[in-house]
Nucleic acid binder design. Structure first.
Length: 234
DNA sequence: CCCTGATTCGC
DNA sequence: GCGAATCAGG
């Protein structure tokens, strides 16, 4: 499908309107999301905040405390129509109202957290919640923190005796090589079980199988037929 | 997993 | 110029 003027127009409008590439592609039909993005870039459409790319603008901000007159952005033409404000300009911070007075009874909050002490102590104790949900002590506090009993670790029993010594699905952890040996569903299917190459799901030896240097596209060979996952032969 | 936009590069 | 493949963050 060719990029007719109409289609380009639609693309432009929708892109500037803040529609996602997927939406645009779907609206246009016959094109992929990638095609839309590629075309948008070739058209020189302004890239909108990418989820991947950090907006690198504020490099000099620290060096220049004085606010410069904002450089006019020539590219962005405000559309005459009312469109959703997609502006990402740093918004002025909302009023830092910590709200002391308040009309109560807005809602019955059932949050079990941080229930305020019924009798207000002269010095309210501020606590933060640590990992696991325990309450951290404030610097001044004397009382020893109540340490919750360590959770008991439940270890599932081995399903069958003939798997003794084999690394089963239940044995897998971050530290255990997950390279499969045999085939799922077969009686003795298990995993390598060696200590992993740190940072990888497999041991050093199996990492050698799992990871290979990436060649340029043109030099890539079609993959050898079905090391795993191929049709089961029975 | 899903989504997103950006980039690369064979065609 | 096109867009699939790939990358990389949310």
């Amino acid at each position: 499908m060719a990029w007719t003027d109409e289609r380009i127009d639609t693309l432009r409008k929708m892109w500037e309107d803040g529609q996602t590439a997927s939406q645009i592609a779907e609206a246009l039909g016959q094109v992929s999301r990638n095609a839309v993005i590629g075309k948008a870039h070739r058209l020189g459409l302004q890239s909108r905040p990418s989820p991947v790319k950090p907006n690198e603008v504020a490099v000099e901000v620290a060096a220049k405390p004085v606010v410069e007159p904002a450089a006019p952005k020539p590219v962005v033409a405000a559309l005459p129509e009312v469109s959703k404000p997609v502006e990402v300009v740093a918004a002025p911070p909302a009023d830092p109202v910590f709200e002391a007075d308040e009309d109560e009874d807005a809602e019955i909050s059932d949050a079990p957290v941080a229930a305020p002490a019924p009798v207000a102590p002269p010095q309210p104790i501020l606590r933060s919640v640590g990992p696991g949900g325990f309450l951290r002590q404030s610097p001044g506090e004397q009382q020893a923190p109540i340490t919750p009993a360590p959770p008991r670790r439940l270890v599932p029993a081995k399903p069958s005796a003939d798997m003794a010594g084999k690394t089963t699905l239940l044995d897998l952890s971050d530290r255990i090589c997950k390279w499969p040996l045999g085939h799922p569903g077969e009686p003795d299917f298990h995993f390598c079980g060696d200590k992993v190459n740190p940072g990888f799901p497999y041991c050093v030896a199996h990492c050698g199988h799992a990871y290979q240097a990436q060649l340029p596209r043109r030099d890539r060979r079609p993959p050898p037929p079905l090391p795993f996952g191929g049709p089961r032969v029975r």
